[in-house]
Amino acid sequence: MNDVIISSTVADATDAQLSAVTKFLYREAQLLDTGRYAEWLDLLADDAVYWIPAKPGQTDPKAVPSIIYENKDLLSMRISRLSDPRTYQTVPPPRTRRIVGNILIEKVDAQSDSLTVNSVAFVHEYRDERCRLFSALCTHVLRETDTGLKISSKRLDLIDCDSTHTAFMSLL
């Protein structure tokens, strides 16, 4: 077991909740794989935080460097760069296919109408004659709002987060 923090119990979520969460995560995967980044951004709550730690089990995003630690505002810049033809990393454009599985609702917080969800994502990226696989444990905190579920935070713990990487820009 890694030092990634996972609670040992699974919340007593309803089948309806699990089904809604599953659909939501599949939808998110589809938007990212088809490059519909603006729509993906709409899935995020305004105060959402997106985090890819650089260290296994990292708890501090400020005093410890992260691969990405951004809010919705910074993500919107990242996305506008992704769609810019002058971005060398997108010429030729990368393609991704991802599988999201092992979806478990870890926590139901009735007070904030939020659900903490763990899932595993395999993101297979093809770019510039090369294929690459990202394996992540994802932790979404999803909030139930009037307009449906919104991402209040998304954390991706890559199995090789502290390893040597080549530069990448695909959204995970």
Binding site: V64, I67, I68, R78, Y88, A167
Partner: peptide, 24 residues
Amino acid sequence: YHRAVRFLTTLSSPASMIYGDDAA
């Protein structure tokens, strides 16, 4: 120190929006 960390992340992370273009 947090600013230095942010600078490092922005410039030198594998997902940097700056360094990635240099590497390419």
